[in-house]
Design a binder for these strands. Structure first.
Lengths: 128, 128
DNA sequence: GGCTTATTGATAACGATTATCAGTAACATT
DNA sequence: AATGTTACTGATAATCGTTATCAATAAGCC
């Protein structure tokens, strides 16, 4: 993995983001530093940085992927109104019996667990 | 909602499926009964039936949606090797404190919870 | 400095899903 | 049973997020 200005800017952009930006938003923010950076480069580096464990890719049902500086195992809430994503402190140890069953009884190797709660935040209460 | 042969066949196809088929697979199976049925019709009816609570749409990260006759709240395991999806008996009550925090403290209205565990099943042990 | 090759920017391709639209069929009303 | 209304169909185009392609560039080793 080669160290490039683009990669450094993309990583620091995510690290500086307190929301959970998608690739396009990250691209826009990175363009404040490197105006010529292309969306393809952003996607490429995000994938590489996620594979390298430097950031986390979050899959949101019926929506584009988001990126998170918090690489710890945690859950998310996604507002179907405004689209914002917030961290949720779910105790994943509560899932241990379930994970143990899969790994020990079923012979499964777990690599990724996705927990996304969706609905409407207080600002977007459905029907308003 | 009008009762059509297509809708009935699509629903009974899903109800008869013990795997978790995607729209294209459901379309192929439905074509055994109605050879002329189109993929668009399958998608349209699956969306309608899911909205009506007659079946469940499952979002799988980095993969197409699957459909499930089990409409109860439950989790899934998705094998990154062979692509199969199986039901996982996760006790969602273990998440109650988390859900309560969102609904009571944050004022959130929850409509959908996605829990997907991904990895490799015993037949697809990674690296083989 | 020169060489190798990973990376870039631009653009095309992709796959899953949704939208469009003219023709058809479901079903309520006579 | 014929009629009218309109939801639904099949075919196809369009969309969206993402990945692949490719010639040009630049990182990092010798």
């Amino acid at each position: 993995m080669r160290k490039t200005v683009q990669k450094q800017v993309i990583l620091s952009t995510v690290l500086a983001s307190c929301d959970h930006p998608d690739a396009e938003t990250i691209c826009e923010r990175a363009r404040a530093v490197i105006p010529s950076i292309s969306l393809g480069t952003v996607y490429r580096n995000l994938a590489q940085l996620a594979a390298d464990g430097k950031l986390k890719r979050i899959s949101i049902p019926d929506s584009g992927d988001r990126f998170d500086k918090n690489v710890e195992e945690h859950a998310h809430f996604h507002c179907l109104g405004c689209g914002k994503v917030i961290d949720v402190n779910l105790n994943f140890e509560q899932m241990d019996s379930c994970k143990e069953f899969l790994t020990e009884k079923m012979g499964v190797t777990l690599t990724k667990i996705t927990v996304v709660m969706q609905g409407y935040c207080s600002d977007c209460a459905k029907g308003e």
